[in-house]
Amino acid sequence: MEVSFDWLDLGGKRVSLTGNHRQEGEGNTGATVGTAVAVGVFSAFVTGRSATIVNGQQLRGRTAEPLTFTVPDSAARVVAGTLVSTPVAAPAATAPVATPAS
């Protein structure tokens, strides 16, 4: 199964997209090959299992041309990222200063 991304309706504006996703079916390969040997040209109508794109699976597409947008100042800001622990060098140890005896 192949899914093609052509366009996206974004607030009433159609934005052209590029991209596709191919999902292979699983299983039944032996039956398909066996049928090809037995019936020849008609084996094209026998395939493996149907492919499945599961609910929540992420697929990627790209805009076909640059997309310009403005974020209003009143919009909520969501900052997402991953914090990575960076080692901090300890200050160099200093030798104790000797004080003269009185």
Rank of each mutant, 00 (worst) to 15 (best):
M1L: 08
E2R: 04
F5D: 00
D6A: 11
D6Q: 10
D6G: 04
W7V: 05
L8F: 04
D9Y: 01
D9M: 08
L10A: 08
G11I: 01
G11Y: 04
G12N: 04
G12I: 01
K13P: 00
R14D: 13
S16W: 04
G19Y: 03
N20F: 14
N20E: 14
H21K: 05
R22P: 02
R22A: 10
R22D: 06
Q23Y: 10
E24R: 10
E24N: 08
G25R: 00
E26Q: 05
G27Y: 01
G27H: 04
G27K: 05
G27E: 03
N28Q: 15
N28G: 11
T29R: 14
T29G: 04
G30N: 08
A31L: 15
T32Y: 00
T32A: 14
T32D: 08
V33P: 07
V33S: 04
A36Y: 07
V37T: 06
A38E: 14
A38W: 00
A38P: 01
V39I: 15
V39Y: 09
G40E: 08
G40C: 04
V41P: 14
F42E: 14
S43A: 15
A44N: 08
A44G: 09
A44T: 13
A44P: 05
A44H: 10
A44I: 09
V46E: 07
T47F: 02
G48Y: 03
R49K: 12
S50F: 03
T52H: 06
I53Q: 01
V54C: 04
N55Y: 07
G56Y: 08
G56W: 06
G56V: 03
Q57R: 09
Q57G: 00
Q58W: 00
R60S: 10
R60P: 00
G61S: 02
G61A: 15
A64I: 01
E65N: 03
L67S: 04
L67C: 03
L67P: 02
L67M: 04
T68Q: 12
T68M: 07
F69I: 01
V71W: 06
V71D: 01
P72N: 07
P72D: 01
D73G: 14
S74I: 03
S74G: 06
A75L: 07
A75V: 05
A75C: 04
R77N: 13
R77W: 11
V78D: 07
V79I: 15
V79N: 14
V79F: 14
A80R: 15
G81E: 04
L83V: 14
L83P: 02
L83M: 09
V84K: 08
V84L: 13
S85K: 14
S85A: 10
P87I: 00
P87E: 05
V88A: 13
A90S: 06
A90E: 09
A92P: 05
A93E: 11
A93G: 10
A93P: 06
T94E: 15
A95N: 09
A98W: 09
T99P: 08
T99R: 12
P100H: 06
S102N: 09
